[in-house]
Simulated scan of single mutants.
Amino acid sequence: MLDDMDRRLLRHWQADAGLSPAELADLTGLTAGKVSRRITRMQEAGIVQGVAAVVDWAALGYTVEVSLRITLDKTQGNAFDRFLEEARQLPEVIELQTFLGRVDVRLSVIARDMAHYQQIYREGILTLPHIADIEALMHVARIKSDEALPL
């Protein structure tokens, strides 16, 4: 579905999503009109799902990140659905992932400090339904964080 020029265009756009069609045209050797048409085609095909601002939450005062590995009590048929529905409502939960295996769900939780995390944990996390076990992993450093695809 993608040709070499599409991949080249996406490589440049992933590196800097703020580039205009004219700037992308200069980098790829296409005209701005052709760049716009290719971007529109990739958006309509669902390849490009949007362009977002990446906010550094640490710069906004969130200095703590905890990864919670949660095992659910699956004796209830709707355990996953109810848990995920309610976990989505917690604003400090910045990522939710589900797994096959002993761990069912992983949450990434951010907080301003440890006291704030303790409040989120007690008033938010522990009130979520169907939790059988929780393991908390405190983030020390983010070594690599890259959503760019190797195109």
Results as ranks from 00 to 15, higher is better:
49 Q>K: 11
142 R>T: 12
69 R>E: 02
64 V>I: 08
42 M>Q: 02
73 D>L: 10
111 A>I: 14
117 Y>N: 02
108 S>Q: 12
101 G>K: 15
89 Q>S: 15
29 G>N: 09
115 A>C: 08
49 Q>Y: 07
88 R>Q: 11
37 R>A: 05
45 A>W: 05
99 F>T: 12
26 D>K: 10
107 L>Q: 06
61 G>H: 09
9 L>F: 06
105 V>R: 13
101 G>E: 14
125 I>Q: 07
91 P>H: 02
16 D>T: 11
13 W>D: 03
18 G>I: 14
68 L>I: 01
20 S>R: 13
143 I>K: 12
91 P>W: 07
53 A>R: 12
110 I>E: 09
51 V>K: 03
14 Q>N: 06
26 D>Y: 04
90 L>R: 08
82 R>L: 12
16 D>C: 12
144 K>D: 02
135 E>A: 04
90 L>S: 07
101 G>Q: 15
45 A>N: 06
18 G>M: 11
97 Q>A: 10
31 T>Y: 01
89 Q>G: 14
143 I>D: 01
17 A>T: 10
143 I>W: 01
59 A>W: 14
106 R>D: 11
7 R>E: 12
127 T>S: 06
111 A>V: 13
139 H>D: 03
18 G>W: 10
33 G>K: 09
37 R>W: 14
136 A>M: 02
43 Q>L: 07
63 T>E: 07
75 T>H: 13
111 A>R: 13
12 H>D: 14
66 V>W: 01
140 V>R: 04
39 I>L: 10
139 H>A: 04
84 L>W: 06
130 H>C: 06
146 D>V: 15
50 G>Y: 07
123 E>W: 00
147 E>W: 13
135 E>P: 05
39 I>C: 01
73 D>S: 09
48 V>I: 15
15 A>K: 15
21 P>Q: 00
83 F>L: 06
34 K>Y: 08
129 P>G: 07
62 Y>D: 03
108 S>K: 12
18 G>R: 15
92 E>M: 03
59 A>M: 14
131 I>C: 00
84 L>Q: 08
123 E>N: 01
121 Y>K: 00
1 M>N: 00
71 T>E: 09
67 S>T: 04
87 A>Q: 13
115 A>W: 01
48 V>G: 03
